[in-house]
Design a binder for these strands. Sequence first.
DNA 1: CTTCCCCGGTAAATCGGTTTCGCGCCTCGC
DNA 2: GCGAGGCGCGAAACCGATTTACCGGGGAAG
Lengths: 356, 356
Amino acid sequence: MAKARSPEPTGHVNLRILADHLGLSQTTVSLVLNNSPSGKSIPQDTRNRVLEAATRLNYRPNYFARSLRQSRSMSVGVLAPDLSEGYFTRVMSGVVQELTRAHYFYFTACHDWNRELLDQYPRMLVERAVDGFLLLNSPSDHIAVPVPVVAISAHCKVAGVTNIVLDHHSAVEQALHHLHQLGHRRIAFKRGPRAIPDSVFRWQSILQVAREIGLRIDPNLVIRIDNTSGWSSKTGSHPMAPEIGYELTQSLLAKSRDFTALFCFNDIAAIGAIRALREAGLSVPQKVSVVGFDDVLSAAYFSPSLTTVRQPLTEMGQRGAQILLERIANRDKQFPTEIVVKPDFVVRESSGPAAG
Amino acid sequence: MAKARSPEPTGHVNLRILADHLGLSQTTVSLVLNNSPSGKSIPQDTRNRVLEAATRLNYRPNYFARSLRQSRSMSVGVLAPDLSEGYFTRVMSGVVQELTRAHYFYFTACHDWNRELLDQYPRMLVERAVDGFLLLNSPSDHIAVPVPVVAISAHCKVAGVTNIVLDHHSAVEQALHHLHQLGHRRIAFKRGPRAIPDSVFRWQSILQVAREIGLRIDPNLVIRIDNTSGWSSKTGSHPMAPEIGYELTQSLLAKSRDFTALFCFNDIAAIGAIRALREAGLSVPQKVSVVGFDDVLSAAYFSPSLTTVRQPLTEMGQRGAQILLERIANRDKQFPTEIVVKPDFVVRESSGPAAG
DNA sequence: CTTCCCCGGTAAATCGGTTTCGCGCCTCGC
DNA sequence: GCGAGGCGCGAAACCGATTTACCGGGGAAG
C-alpha cells in the first residue's frame, strides 16, 4: 500500500519530494524513471504509480544534479568562424537534425578568425563540460581537448579528430572541365583566405587538375582573398562580405583584363566579382564567365544566376554530428580519420562559351 | 606554515584536492577564489598561496557543481525561426557581443515555425536551466517560463516580456515617401507570413502611411508570403528562400501587371521577385521599382542593387541582450515593456521614377 | 563592565540527482 | 534441510562546488 506522506506538491518538485509523496525511496523512483537495468525487479504496479505521480506533479529532473553525477552535459560545442549564410546555416541544418534526435543541444562559438578566441573558446566550453566538439571550417591543428572532436571542412591530422571533407579534386575537376569545354583557356582564380583550411586544399586540387587537363595557370591571374593579414580584427565588417570579392576583382582588373573566366572561392566572392566586372564593362557571361562555390540560397536568383559547385553541406553536418555522437557514446572505439563526400556541379547563367 | 598534504596534483584537481594540497579547508579556498565578501578577513598571504596553487595546478571549478549550488547556468536560450542570413546573423552579432562580455553562452533553438517545437523548446531549455530567453522574430504570446524573456521583433504583450521593436511607421513612411516622390501611385505589396510577428505590424503601418499620404492600396496588388498554411512543415525547403518571392511574384503577375512599384517584406523576397519580374519582361527599375526590407549583406551587390529599409538589427540584438542580462541579475526590478528603434532607408538601383 | 564585532579560518549542511551495497523474505534445486 | 539466487526496496555514499554557522580570544564601542 502506498503510504503517501506529503499530500501537497506545493512548490517545485524534486526527487525527494516526489519520493516522499509516493512513500518510496529516491532510489526506487530514480530507477523507475530512468528505466535503469538495476531496477528491473520493480513490479509494474509500482512503476505505474511512480510514472503517474511524476507526470501529474510535473516532475523535471534537475539538469545540473544529473550532469554532476553522470558527468555529461548532453551538449556539444560548435566552433565556427562566423554565422554566415553560405556555409554555417547549411551545415548546421544537418547538425541540428542529428543532435535533436539524440536530445543534444549545442553552444555556438564564433571565433571570427581571432587567434585568442580560437584558444579560449575550446577551454571555456570544456569548462562547461560539453561532451564533444564540432569544428566548422576552422583551423583545428592545435585543438587539445579531453573530448571527441569532429572537424568539418578541416584537414586536421591530429590524432583523435575525425575530419569530414569535400572531394576537392572532384569539385575542381567538374568546374575546370566545364570551363575548358566551353573554350576557356585563360582562367583567373580567386583563392580563399589563408585562414580557411579548405583554401589550400582547393588550390592544390586546382593545380593538379590544371596539370591533368593541360591548362596553364598564369600567376598574374591569381589573387587571394585575404583581409590584410588573413586574420581580420576589424569589428563590424563581415569577413565574408561580397565587398571583399568586389574590391579584389577591381585590383585584379587593374593588373590584367586578359582572361575569359574567373573561378571564385565561394559564391559570396563571386557576387562581388560580378559587380566589379560589370562596372568595368565586362559583362557576365558574355565577356567573362564566373564560377562560384557553395551554391548559397540566392545563387540561383542572382542575375546572372551563378554556375557553382554545390557542396553537400547539410549531409556533411549530418555525418559529422552522427560520428561525434557515436564517439561520445563510445569513447574507446576506433573511428575513421577522414570521411570524403562528393560535390555536385550546377550550371547556370554565369558561365558560357569563351569570348572569341 | 603550510601543511601540504598531497604533494602530487596527479589527475584532475577539484576543490578538495586543491584544499588538501594547500592544507586549507575547501571553504577558505572557495572564498578566496570567488573573492567572496564573506571571506574578506583572509589575509593577502593566504590568498596568494591559494591563487598561486590554483593557477599552477590549473584548477577549473566544476561547472555543474557550481551551477547546482547557485542555480544559475550562465547561459541563455535563443529561440529563432531559422538561421537565415538576413535576420538571425545580424541580430546575433549584437547579442553575442553582450553575452560574451558577461561570460554568458547561449543555446540556439530553431523552431522552423513548427508549433510543437515552439512549445517544446522553451520547456527543454528551462530544464537545462537557462537563465533567460531571447526570442527572435518569433511568436511569443504563449510563452510561459520562470525566467526573464526579451523578445526582439515581437510585439508580445505578455507581462514580464520586454519587446525590442522597430519603428515600423517610420520605416514604411520612408519607403512609401520615396516611391511616392518618384511618382509611383500603383504600388504592389508583398506582405510577410502570418507567422512572423512583424508582418501584421508592418502592414498596419503601411495602411496608415498610405492613408496619410493619400495612396490608394489596390487589394489586387497585395499578396502574402505564406507557405501553404503559414506554418511550413516541409523539410528541406528553407522557409525564407528567394524561390518563395519568385513564385509569389509570378502569381501576382498572373493577376495584374498594372503596377509600377513593389514593396517586399524582405530582401530575400525582393531578390526572388526581381527575377520573376525580369522573366516577365518587366525590367527593374525601368518598368517596376522594387523596395526590400532588412538590407542583407548582398543587397548592395545584387544587380540591380536593392533599395531597402535597413533595420538596426545588430543594435537591437545588443540592446536585447543587455536588458536580458540586467533582468537576470535583477529579477525583481521593473523594466520597460517596449523599446523602439529607428530604421534607416537605403536608396540604391532597384528603385527609380515611375514608368510613364 | 558589558556587548559586539573582527580575526583566520573550519566543520558541516546543502544543492538534487545517480548508484552501490545490502537487507529480509521467498522460492527453487539438490 | 540448506544454500543459491531472485525479488522489492532502502540507506547511504557520491558528484564538487557554495554557504551557513561557529570557534575562542581580543579590542573597540557604549
